[in-house]
Simulated assay, not measured.
Amino acid sequence: MKNKHSDINTIIITNRNLNQRIDNFLNSKFKKIPKSFIYKILRKGKIKVNKKRVKPLYKLKINDEISIISSYLYNEHKTISNIKKNKVAFLNKLILYEDDYIIVINKPSGVAVHGGSGLSFGVIEGLRSLRSNCSFLELVHRLDRSTSGLLLIAKKRSALKCLHEQLRNRFIKKDYLALVHGIWPSNLKIINAPLKKQISLYSSSRSMVYVDINGKPSETYFQVKEYFRSTTLLKVRPITGHTHQIRVHAMHAGYPILFDGRYGKNSLDNQIDLGLNRLFLHAHALTFLHPKTGVMTYLEAPLDTILIKCLTNLSLNKIKI
């Protein structure tokens, strides 16, 4: 139902959608609008239920009135899509692999995977802008904004379903390179510590994750690659895939990742002059079954110049243990 005196579209919830999450309801109803944009306008309060702002997890009740400003929903999204093309053209140069089913890019540190929390766009919105003829583009998994490396995107719904199933069954292997403070014990190979996320009262973008006995089971494998005078280069493989998992597990072990602004130690970072100004965590390798052919696929993402320079500087101080 559309209000004749405004641009507000009102939807009345019936028994058919009882207890459905509002984010899932909206994503199903407005399939041509990217999910990230739906979440963004929900957070901004541009979509209201019974004239009140609600969270994406809100479960619908019978006779709930959902109010949507139609022009904002479509025109604002169209505007964002148009203005960012010249800003996201660099993404084309980061593509390591692409076919009819998937795209794999080497995401830079500092670039978010999706818009929201003050960001007008991220990798997925940028790719949708650059691939306007592609009717389907969705993130298979996520990377922290400060983490660089391999990011997998599905170009077909069937591919997304297949890859998500592989994630659930732990068929997809993701290997990271992390540089941590201190001399990591060679016998410390597994950290199995439950994690719990705590949302900030002031900003969801500043949520923190803690080791908590009541948290979600979380497991990470660590392997020493090289020792330096006061740091260790690790190969890391998360078995579960929770928010900030590697960063929190490294901190929990007592060896925080260099230049981790959220879980690291500034006092330690300030003692090291390596030309580094970003988190040293890089999604280095990805192994998965191709969603169409079923062929085992292995991809690597090279380090950026900042991380290469850092390791070059450190190579002068290698040690053996």
Rank of each mutant, 00 (worst) to 15 (best):
K235F: 03
I183A: 10
S200M: 06
A193W: 00
R237N: 09
Y202G: 05
K225R: 13
Q245T: 10
I239A: 00
S207R: 08
S186R: 13
N266R: 14
D212G: 04
A193N: 02
V180R: 02
F259G: 02
L188H: 04
L179H: 01
Y255P: 08
R237S: 15
G261V: 07
N270S: 10
I172P: 11
L233P: 11
L177K: 12
K216W: 01
S218G: 03
S200T: 13
N187R: 11
S230F: 13
A250P: 05
Q223N: 12
F259S: 05
K174L: 12
L233G: 06
D269E: 11
W184C: 11
T240C: 10
I190M: 09
K196S: 11
I257A: 10
K174Q: 13
L233S: 04
I213K: 14
S218E: 03
N266Q: 12
Y202M: 13
Q271H: 08
G215H: 02
S204Y: 10
R170L: 09
V180S: 04
E226N: 14
A253L: 02
N214Q: 11
P217S: 06
Y202F: 15
N266F: 12
L195N: 02
I191D: 01
L188N: 06
G264I: 07
R237T: 15
T240W: 05
F228E: 00
S200P: 07
G254M: 09
P256S: 06
Q245F: 06
Y202R: 14
A250R: 02
T243R: 11
K196H: 01
L195R: 00
P185W: 05
T240E: 07
S230Y: 13
G182V: 09
G254E: 04
R206Y: 14
D273Q: 13
P238H: 05
V209M: 13
R237W: 07
S218N: 07
S205R: 10
I272K: 14
I272G: 01
T220E: 00
A253K: 01
G261H: 09
I257L: 12
S203T: 06
H252I: 00
I272Q: 14
F228V: 01
R247N: 05
M251T: 13
D269S: 04
F228R: 03
T231C: 04
S205M: 10
V236L: 07
K216M: 09
L234E: 08
M208W: 01
A250V: 04
I213E: 12
L188P: 03
M251E: 11
I257P: 02
H181D: 01
Y227I: 06
S200V: 07
I183C: 06
F171G: 08
N266L: 14
S203G: 03
F222S: 09
E226P: 00
A178T: 07
D273L: 10
T243V: 04
D175R: 15
I246G: 01
V248P: 03
S205E: 14
D175L: 07
D260R: 07
I239Y: 09
N214C: 08
H252K: 07
H252F: 13
F222N: 02
Y263V: 06
M208F: 11
S200F: 05
A253V: 05
